[in-house]
Design a binder for these strands. Structure first.
Lengths: 142, 142
DNA sequence: CCTTGCTCCTATAGCCGCTATAGGAATTAG
DNA sequence: CTAATTCCTATAGCGGCTATAGGAGCAAGG
């Protein structure tokens, strides 16, 4: 069967990647420029669709563009070692773990703030006080 | 005692906010434009320093600029109700909790990926497989 | 007094990963 | 045949900085 013509709108619906984002991915070279119809519309195929879904999934998992480029390149050489994929994922896992730790510490601080707030005046508000109390925390948070 | 002249560099060291970032905060109106010396250097005072520390702490806690503007405005009206500060912090706390949840789910998926990887070829790599397996997750992640 | 090297100044561009807008052209539905 | 929808390109903007270029001021050593 001949590949059924997939417009950008349909590719968007079927991949979960928004139309302008698909064009953006093409511009930055994450997605190969697809064929065009007579009227200059993009015509995607199943390969493109798979690539888009792959990208979306990786983005949902928080991989950045550089990582995704590497992972995509690997899928194109299925015989090569998966050591790199493993180490990208492992590094990312450690980053996520650190973010969870930081956010958990942060949640503690916010909980203390909100619980300590007596709902009175700003001058005795724990939320404001903690923010103004500058020497009790050093961490960077993202 | 007269306020000791604080240069931008010293303000940076003492607040933990980088020099270009201080200038940036001034430009976007988060920090009032300070007095200038004869040679056109910024001269900060203890008030500015406190404001910078407040901003840094709030940024570390992940508050965005709009929230920080509101919180700063509140500190200037200490008689007013702290209901708003409380609700900003509460809303932020809920956001953080959601981020923790998402990241925890994500960590699980990444752990499964990394553990499942047999360190062999890409064609049988679990990391790549999970990414290419498009229909097993719907969440948005930030 | 003069040079060296540091800090400071402004203005502008770039980062990431999109998202929005303007101003059209082509296709599709009724 | 028209009206609505989809598509096209190009460009600017978002948040929250960070980097760069091209100077000017200032403090310390020779």
């Amino acid at each position: 069967m001949p590949a059924y013509e997939i417009t950008i709108g349909e590719a968007s619906r079927r991949s979960g990647v928004k139309v302008p984002t698909i064009r953006f991915y093409e511009r930055i070279g994450l997605l190969p420029a697809p064929a065009r119809s007579e009227g200059n519309r993009r015509q995607f195929d199943d390969n493109d669709l798979n690539r888009l879904k792959f990208i979306r999934h990786a983005r949902e998992l928080g991989f950045d563009m550089a990582d995704i480029r590497e992972l995509l390149a690997m899928t194109e050489e299925p015989q090569s070692s998966c050591h790199d994929a493993d180490s990208i994922a492992g590094r990312h896992l450690r980053e996520i773990e650190q973010r969870i730790e930081r956010l958990t510490a942060l949640r503690g601080e916010l909980q203390r703030m909100v619980e300590g707030c007596g709902h009175g005046q700003v001058c005795e508000c724990r939320v404001i006080q903690i923010l103004a109390d500058h020497d009790n925390c050093r961490s960077d948070v993202h």
